[in-house]
Every structure is written in C-alpha cells, then in structure tokens.
C-alpha cells in the first residue's frame, strides 16, 4: 500500500519478501535473528529509516545499506533494532560468584602485577560494567592487590555514548543499596544520578560487533567475559560463532558468565561447565 503525499510517495508497509531480505541482511551483519513474530517490532523502525533517508521504498533503502561504504546507515538502523534493557546489579548472584569464587580461582594462577581483565560484552548503557567496578570495590577483599581492567563493548553507538556520559535514571539504580548509591553517585536535580568521574574514567568503552571476527581478534587475554542477554537475540549458527570467538579472547582457564536464562549447552561444547556456590559458569579448558 502506498499513500501519495503532496510531494513524494511514502511506503507504509513492507512486503514479505522485503521483510525477509532486510532481516537476512541484518542477520548477516550482526547475528541478530528476527522471525515473523518480531515483525511488529522491525517494521515501524525500518519504515522510519526509509522515510528519513528519503528512499523511494524498502528496496532502494536496502541498496543504500548495501552500498554505503561509510557504514553510517547500518549503524543507525542497528541502533534502532537493538534491545538495550539493563540495570545496575542485574542478576547480583553472578557478581557474588565473581568475587567469591571466580576471582579467587583466577588469581591463584596469576603473578603479582599481572592485570585482571574483565569484559562486559555487551555493555548496553553501561550499568553492567559500572556494576562490576562498584561490586569489586565493595566486595573483593583483594581489590587493592591487583590491577583490574574493565572493558565494555557494544555494537550500538548510541548506548555507548550514554554509557560514557554516566547519567542514570531512578529505575536503573533501583536495586543499588542506598549507601552504595551515596558513595558512587551524585544526585542530580531531575531525579537522575551521575556516576563518579573516577569510575567513568576507569572503564574502557569501545564499539564491537561480536559477529565481526576482525574486531573480536583485537581482544586477547581476557579473564572473565560477562556476555549476558545478547545471545538470546541470535540464532544457533551466530551463537556458535560468537562462542568460538569469545573462546579465543579468553586466556586458557578464563570464564564466561551468561544471562540466567541462557546456556551454552545447546550450541557450543568448547567450554567446561563449572558450578560455583552462586552460579553456573563456563570455563575455557586449560589445554
């Protein structure tokens, strides 16, 4: 269906074929897999970009995506399609597992001076990596003995900007104990909270597409990857590829924490499953 306006024709619907082609394109570039059940979500976002780029229709918008050497439009559409829901101290038991079991296990094998590298992938608007930093400061007795590097990456450039800015609304900090909120944040006038600059400065944010091998290859010798609530948007082949990439970003013996409803068991057998007191995690074997 097309509605004819005064000056130009704006498509208001997407054909099955166009929908499939578009999803296929996004899938190949990002690993995110959308079935028909997500059409209600995709269609308005796609049509908005078609209109804003003044494309004559979905077909020509797809060509624009394919031949846009700058990658700028891909970035915009990917930003529009990601689900960025996150909050501080989400699935707290995994942070407890980190300080109670994972880190003690890891540092046994480290020499003093060697860094401990933790990667929040994907980090969305930053709640997860900042939670990691705060949790370590609050709960790890050895925090002063080690150089801790926290890396944080996401494919979505818009959320990365917000993460670097470090301003959060009340809902996002809801689960933080009052005392913690007081120690690491400054209240703003509009019921939002600004995280301390020292914390902001301590986290290294970067744009990474997990499905891009070249980008992933730049990350090496990671001790722990928090990979929570992203693989649920992938299909099995992209999950396997992501698991294979992450395997090689880790040091032998390094760990991956997935979201609580996620499991490696159906798509990758590269890791050993480890049960600690607070959580099930996956470990890259030593050999």
């Amino acid at each position: 269906m097309r509605v004819t306006g005064a000056t130009k024709t704006v498509p208001t619907a997407v054909t099955d074929d166009e929908f499939r082609k578009f999803c296929d394109f996004i899938y190949r570039r990002t690993g995110m897999s959308f079935g028909d059940s997500k059409r209600y979500f995709i269609e308005p976002r796609l049509l908005e970009r078609v209109a804003e780029t003044e494309s004559s229709g979905v077909q020509s918008y797809l060509s624009l995506l394919r031949f846009d050497a700058t990658g700028r439009e891909l970035e915009v559409i990917v930003n529009a399609l990601t689900v960025n829901e996150t909050y501080f101290y989400r699935e707290e038991h995994q942070f407890a597992c980190l300080t109670r079991s994972i880190l003690p296990d890891l540092v046994k094998r480290k020499r003093p001076g060697e860094p401990v590298r933790i990667w929040s992938l994907p980090c969305s608007t930053g709640e997860e990596p900042y939670s990691l930093a705060i949790w370590l400061l609050e709960h790890w007795s050895e925090v002063d003995r080690w150089d801790i590097q926290i890396l944080a990456s996401d494919i979505d450039t818009r959320v990365l900007e917000r993460a670097r800015e470090g301003i959060f609304d009340a809902r996002s900090v809801n689960r933080l104990p009052k005392a913690v909120l007081g120690r690491y944040f400054q209240p703003m006038l509009d019921d939002r909270w600004r995280i301390l600059d020292t914390l902001r400065g301590s986290i290294d944010f970067s744009r990474v597409n997990v499905s891009d091998r070249g980008q992933m290859a730049a990350f090496r010798d990671i001790d722990v990857i928090f990979c929570r609530n992203m693989l649920i948007y992938f299909d099995d082949v992209s999950r396997r590829e992501a698991a294979e990439s992450m395997f090689h970003c880790l040091r032998p013996g390094g760990f991956i924490c997935l979201g609580h409803s996620e499991s490696m068991s159906r798509f990758s057998s590269l890791f050993d499953v480890r049960r600690f007191e607070d959580a099930i995690v996956y470990q890259r074997p030593f050999t």
């Binding site: 400061l137 150089d147 801790i148 890396l151 301590s202 986290i203 290294d204 290859a217 730049a218």
Partner: peptide, 14 residues
C-alpha cells in the same frame, strides 16, 4: 581507587 583503565585494545596483528 585501584581500578585501572585498560589500554585501548591493540589493533589486530596484521
């Protein structure tokens, strides 16, 4: 504070 910023990831070895 003991947290340190990670050196920006090395560009992938050629």
């Amino acid at each position: 504070m003991p947290l340190v910023k990670a050196p920006a990831p090395q560009t992938p070895a050629a």
